[in-house]
Amino acid sequence: MAKRRIVLTFPSRLIDQPITYHLIKDYNLAVNILRARVSPKEEGRLMIELSGKKSSLDAGLNYLKELGVNVQPLAQDIRWLEERCTHCTVCVPICPTKAITVDRDKMRVSFDKERCIACELCVPICPYKAIEILF
């Protein structure tokens, strides 16, 4: 089983297409939609977690690319700016997936991009603006 968290950008000509349906039905992938948005310029953005067999995953991603969907890893859209972080830990209890954790011995914060679902709960509460999510 392989798992990838990605951000898809759909050009306006594709926004009425049932693309996630094809990922599930034709490529046998489990699709977990984390966030979705259609912008006023009719560009679609979809943040998803895909899981399935490695070969299915590669075929599915290839299908997206051939359609003209831009695929980028989710990690690129989420940034923990460590130089801004003071390890105050105010964000730790609010994170629902434990992507932000604290080493209780050193009282230092760390951020695991793989666990982040980009819910943005940590964004307004960080006094230092140390987390940026571009979606």
Binding site: T86, H87, C88, T89, V90, C91, V92, P93, I94, V102, R104, K106, M107, R108, V109, P127
Partner: peptide, 19 residues
């Protein structure tokens, strides 16, 4: 990381930095 308030477990965070 957790305190008990009126019988409920409540997660805690700081604002000042021990580090």
């Amino acid at each position: 990381g957790v305190i008990t308030v009126q019988g409920k477990q409540v997660p805690t965070g700081s604002l000042s930095s021990y580090a």
